[in-house]
Protein backbone atom coordinates (compact mmCIF):
# COMPACT_ATOMS: atom_id res chain seq x y z
CA UNK A 1 0.00 0.00 0.00
CA UNK A 2 2.65 2.46 1.04
CA UNK A 3 4.84 1.38 -1.87
CA UNK A 4 2.08 2.00 -4.34
CA UNK A 5 1.46 5.40 -2.89
CA UNK A 6 5.08 6.48 -3.17
CA UNK A 7 5.80 5.28 -6.66
CA UNK A 8 2.64 6.75 -8.08
CA UNK A 9 2.96 10.08 -6.38
CA UNK A 10 6.65 10.35 -7.01
CA UNK A 11 6.32 9.84 -10.77
CA UNK A 12 3.45 12.25 -11.10
CA UNK A 13 5.45 14.74 -9.09
CA UNK A 14 8.55 14.34 -11.23
CA UNK A 15 6.73 14.59 -14.53
CA UNK A 16 5.05 17.73 -13.36
CA UNK A 17 8.08 19.44 -11.94
CA UNK A 18 11.37 18.11 -13.24
CA UNK A 19 11.21 18.21 -17.06
CA UNK A 20 14.69 19.06 -18.35
CA UNK A 21 16.06 20.58 -15.20
CA UNK A 22 19.04 18.31 -15.33
CA UNK A 23 20.42 15.59 -13.20
CA UNK A 24 21.01 17.57 -9.98
CA UNK A 25 17.54 19.04 -9.89
CA UNK A 26 16.04 15.64 -10.61
CA UNK A 27 17.98 13.93 -7.87
CA UNK A 28 17.30 16.65 -5.32
CA UNK A 29 13.60 16.78 -6.18
CA UNK A 30 13.29 13.03 -5.89
CA UNK A 31 15.06 13.05 -2.54
CA UNK A 32 13.02 16.01 -1.31
CA UNK A 33 9.83 14.22 -2.16
CA UNK A 34 11.06 11.12 -0.34
CA UNK A 35 11.88 13.18 2.75
CA UNK A 36 8.49 14.92 2.71
CA UNK A 37 6.79 11.57 2.35
CA UNK A 38 8.75 10.02 5.26
CA UNK A 39 8.25 12.99 7.55
CA UNK A 40 4.58 13.39 6.74
CA UNK A 41 3.73 9.76 7.44
CA UNK A 42 6.03 9.51 10.48
CA UNK A 43 4.66 12.71 12.06
CA UNK A 44 1.10 11.55 11.44
CA UNK A 45 1.70 8.09 12.89
CA UNK A 46 3.68 9.40 15.86
CA UNK A 47 0.76 11.69 16.76
CA UNK A 48 -1.80 8.94 16.37
CA UNK A 49 0.13 7.00 19.03
CA UNK A 50 1.95 9.77 20.92
CA UNK A 51 -1.08 11.98 21.57
CA UNK A 52 -2.97 9.30 23.53
CA UNK A 53 0.25 8.37 25.31
CA UNK A 54 0.80 11.99 26.34
CA UNK A 55 -2.79 12.28 27.54
CA UNK A 56 -2.45 9.07 29.57
CA UNK A 57 0.79 10.39 31.10
CA UNK A 58 -1.11 13.46 32.31
CA UNK A 59 -4.39 11.97 33.50
CA UNK A 60 -2.80 9.09 35.40
CA UNK A 61 -0.75 11.48 37.51
CA UNK A 62 -1.45 11.89 41.19
CA UNK A 63 -4.67 13.77 41.77
CA UNK A 64 -5.71 13.83 38.12
CA UNK A 65 -8.91 12.43 36.64
CA UNK A 66 -7.66 8.86 36.16
CA UNK A 67 -4.93 8.60 38.78
CA UNK A 68 -2.90 5.43 38.29
CA UNK A 69 0.62 5.84 39.57
CA UNK A 70 1.69 2.34 38.58
CA UNK A 71 0.77 2.83 34.92
CA UNK A 72 2.12 6.36 35.00
CA UNK A 73 5.55 5.24 36.19
CA UNK A 74 5.80 2.38 33.71
CA UNK A 75 4.91 4.64 30.78
CA UNK A 76 7.23 7.38 31.99
CA UNK A 77 10.04 4.83 32.24
CA UNK A 78 9.42 3.54 28.70
CA UNK A 79 9.28 7.05 27.33
CA UNK A 80 12.52 8.02 29.02
CA UNK A 81 14.23 4.84 27.89
CA UNK A 82 13.49 5.36 24.21
CA UNK A 83 14.36 9.04 24.47
CA UNK A 84 17.72 8.27 26.02
CA UNK A 85 18.89 6.13 23.08
CA UNK A 86 20.59 8.23 20.38
CA UNK A 87 18.53 7.97 17.20
CA UNK A 88 21.33 6.58 15.06
CA UNK A 89 21.73 3.67 17.51
CA UNK A 90 17.98 3.22 17.92
CA UNK A 91 17.74 2.94 14.15
CA UNK A 92 20.13 0.00 14.12
CA UNK A 93 18.64 -1.61 17.24
CA UNK A 94 15.19 -1.92 15.76
CA UNK A 95 16.21 -3.19 12.31
CA UNK A 96 14.70 -6.62 13.04
CA UNK A 97 11.40 -4.99 13.98
CA UNK A 98 11.50 -2.82 10.86
CA UNK A 99 12.06 -5.94 8.72
CA UNK A 100 9.14 -7.61 10.42
CA UNK A 101 6.79 -4.71 9.74
CA UNK A 102 7.88 -3.51 6.29
CA UNK A 103 9.77 -6.55 4.95
CA UNK A 104 13.00 -4.60 4.43
CA UNK A 105 15.20 -2.26 6.41
CA UNK A 106 16.23 -0.13 3.43
CA UNK A 107 14.34 2.66 1.72
CA UNK A 108 11.95 5.41 2.63
CA UNK A 109 9.08 3.24 3.77
CA UNK A 110 11.39 1.27 6.03
CA UNK A 111 12.66 4.51 7.55
CA UNK A 112 9.17 5.42 8.67
CA UNK A 113 9.28 2.69 11.34
CA UNK A 114 12.26 3.99 13.37
CA UNK A 115 11.28 7.60 12.74
CA UNK A 116 7.79 6.99 14.13
CA UNK A 117 8.90 4.88 17.07
CA UNK A 118 11.54 7.42 18.08
CA UNK A 119 9.08 10.30 17.73
CA UNK A 120 6.27 8.74 19.80
CA UNK A 121 7.86 9.35 23.23
CA UNK A 122 8.99 12.80 22.10
CA UNK A 123 5.44 13.63 21.02
CA UNK A 124 4.07 12.21 24.28
CA UNK A 125 6.28 14.54 26.33
CA UNK A 126 5.36 17.54 24.16
CA UNK A 127 1.66 16.76 24.51
CA UNK A 128 2.12 16.24 28.24
CA UNK A 129 3.73 19.68 28.57
CA UNK A 130 0.94 21.27 26.52
CA UNK A 131 -1.79 19.70 28.63
CA UNK A 132 -0.11 20.73 31.86
CA UNK A 133 -0.39 24.36 30.84
CA UNK A 134 -4.15 24.09 31.26
CA UNK A 135 -5.37 25.43 34.56
CA UNK A 136 -6.67 22.75 36.89
CA UNK A 137 -9.71 24.95 37.53
CA UNK A 138 -11.02 24.12 34.06
CA UNK A 139 -10.87 20.41 34.77
CA UNK A 140 -12.44 21.00 38.17
CA UNK A 141 -15.26 23.01 36.58
CA UNK A 142 -15.96 20.17 34.14
CA UNK A 143 -15.92 17.66 36.99
CA UNK A 144 -18.35 19.81 38.95
CA UNK A 145 -20.72 19.60 35.98
CA UNK A 146 -20.56 15.83 36.03
CA UNK A 147 -18.33 15.32 32.99
CA UNK A 148 -16.91 11.88 32.22
CA UNK A 149 -13.16 11.48 31.77
CA UNK A 150 -13.68 11.10 28.03
CA UNK A 151 -15.64 14.36 27.92
CA UNK A 152 -12.91 16.10 29.89
CA UNK A 153 -10.28 14.86 27.43
CA UNK A 154 -12.21 15.72 24.27
CA UNK A 155 -13.99 18.88 25.39
CA UNK A 156 -11.51 20.46 27.79
CA UNK A 157 -7.96 19.13 27.58
CA UNK A 158 -7.47 18.84 23.82
CA UNK A 159 -9.39 21.96 22.70
CA UNK A 160 -7.77 24.11 25.40
CA UNK A 161 -4.27 22.85 24.60
CA UNK A 162 -4.72 22.93 20.82
CA UNK A 163 -2.59 26.03 20.10
CA UNK A 164 0.26 24.55 22.11
CA UNK A 165 -0.21 21.09 20.58
CA UNK A 166 -0.08 22.66 17.11
CA UNK A 167 3.23 24.27 17.90
CA UNK A 168 4.41 20.87 19.12
CA UNK A 169 3.54 19.33 15.74
CA UNK A 170 5.85 21.84 14.05
CA UNK A 171 8.64 21.04 16.52
CA UNK A 172 8.18 17.31 15.97
CA UNK A 173 8.20 17.69 12.20
CA UNK A 174 11.41 19.68 12.33
CA UNK A 175 13.00 17.11 14.61
CA UNK A 176 11.97 14.35 12.24
CA UNK A 177 13.56 16.19 9.32
CA UNK A 178 16.83 15.96 11.22
CA UNK A 179 16.28 12.32 12.16
CA UNK A 180 15.39 11.41 8.58
CA UNK A 181 18.78 12.67 7.41
CA UNK A 182 20.42 10.26 9.87
CA UNK A 183 18.23 7.47 8.59
CA UNK A 184 19.43 8.42 5.13
CA UNK A 185 22.99 7.54 6.01
CA UNK A 186 22.07 3.90 6.61
CA UNK A 187 20.09 3.74 3.40
CA UNK A 188 16.87 5.34 4.49
CA UNK A 189 16.44 7.38 1.34
CA UNK A 190 15.56 11.03 1.04
CA UNK A 191 17.85 14.04 1.32
CA UNK A 192 20.06 12.34 3.90
CA UNK A 193 21.01 9.52 1.53
CA UNK A 194 21.58 11.97 -1.29
CA UNK A 195 23.83 14.22 0.78
CA UNK A 196 25.77 11.27 2.15
CA UNK A 197 26.40 9.35 -1.07
CA UNK A 198 26.90 12.25 -3.43
CA UNK A 199 28.10 14.92 -1.08
CA UNK A 200 30.27 12.95 1.31
CA UNK A 201 31.40 9.89 -0.64
CA UNK A 202 31.69 11.52 -4.10
CA UNK A 203 32.64 15.05 -3.02
CA UNK A 204 29.76 16.49 -5.01
CA UNK A 205 29.53 19.89 -3.35
CA UNK A 206 26.73 21.05 -5.61
CA UNK A 207 24.43 18.30 -4.42
CA UNK A 208 25.61 18.66 -0.82
CA UNK A 209 24.86 22.38 -0.69
CA UNK A 210 21.61 22.10 -2.62
CA UNK A 211 20.50 19.57 -0.05
CA UNK A 212 21.39 21.90 2.78
CA UNK A 213 19.44 24.76 1.21
CA UNK A 214 16.40 22.56 0.65
CA UNK A 215 16.53 21.46 4.29
CA UNK A 216 16.78 25.05 5.50
CA UNK A 217 13.72 26.02 3.47
CA UNK A 218 11.84 22.99 4.71
CA UNK A 219 12.50 23.76 8.36
CA UNK A 220 11.69 27.45 7.96
CA UNK A 221 8.51 26.57 6.12
CA UNK A 222 7.31 24.13 8.75
CA UNK A 223 8.06 26.54 11.60
CA UNK A 224 6.28 29.42 9.85
CA UNK A 225 3.29 27.22 9.14
CA UNK A 226 3.20 26.07 12.79
CA UNK A 227 3.50 29.64 14.09
CA UNK A 228 0.75 30.86 11.79
CA UNK A 229 -1.63 28.05 12.72
CA UNK A 230 -0.97 28.64 16.43
CA UNK A 231 -1.50 32.38 16.08
CA UNK A 232 -4.74 31.74 14.23
CA UNK A 233 -5.96 29.45 17.02
CA UNK A 234 -4.95 31.96 19.68
CA UNK A 235 -6.46 34.92 17.87
CA UNK A 236 -9.64 35.04 19.92
CA UNK A 237 -8.55 33.11 22.95
CA UNK A 238 -6.13 35.62 24.34
Amino acid sequence: MLHLLTSFDYHTFMIMLSGDYGIVAEKVLKATWETIYMIFIATGLSYILGLPLGIILVITEKGHIAENLFLNRILAFLVNTVRSIPFIIFLILIIPLTRMIVGTSIGTTASIVPLTLAAIPFVARLVETSLKEIEWGLVEAALSMGATNWQIITKVLIPEALPSITLGIAITTINLIGYSAMAGIVGGGGLGTLAYYYGYQRYDNLILWTTVIVLIFMVQGVQTLGDKATAKLNEKRR
Binding site: E135, G137, L138, E140, A141, A142, S144, M145, G146, A147, T148, Q151, K155, V156, P159, E160, L162, R237, R238
Partner: peptide, 26 residues
Amino acid sequence: GMIFQHFNLLSSRTVFDNVMFPLEIA
Protein backbone atom coordinates in the same frame (compact mmCIF):
# COMPACT_ATOMS: atom_id res chain seq x y z
CA GLY B 1 -24.16 24.25 39.93
CA MET B 2 -20.81 25.72 40.87
CA ILE B 3 -19.17 29.07 40.22
CA PHE B 4 -15.54 29.90 40.79
CA GLN B 5 -13.28 32.76 41.81
CA HIS B 6 -11.38 32.62 38.52
CA PHE B 7 -14.49 31.81 36.48
CA ASN B 8 -12.91 28.77 34.81
CA LEU B 9 -14.40 29.41 31.39
CA LEU B 10 -13.10 27.51 28.38
CA SER B 11 -10.98 29.89 26.31
CA SER B 12 -11.59 27.77 23.21
CA ARG B 13 -15.34 28.36 23.30
CA THR B 14 -17.58 31.36 22.78
CA VAL B 15 -19.85 32.58 25.57
CA PHE B 16 -22.72 30.69 23.96
CA ASP B 17 -20.74 27.44 23.74
CA ASN B 18 -19.44 27.82 27.29
CA VAL B 19 -23.01 27.89 28.57
CA MET B 20 -23.77 25.00 26.23
CA PHE B 21 -20.97 22.93 27.79
CA PRO B 22 -22.87 21.46 30.80
CA LEU B 23 -25.80 20.70 28.50
CA GLU B 24 -23.47 18.74 26.21
CA ILE B 25 -22.20 16.87 29.25
CA ALA B 26 -25.76 16.03 30.26
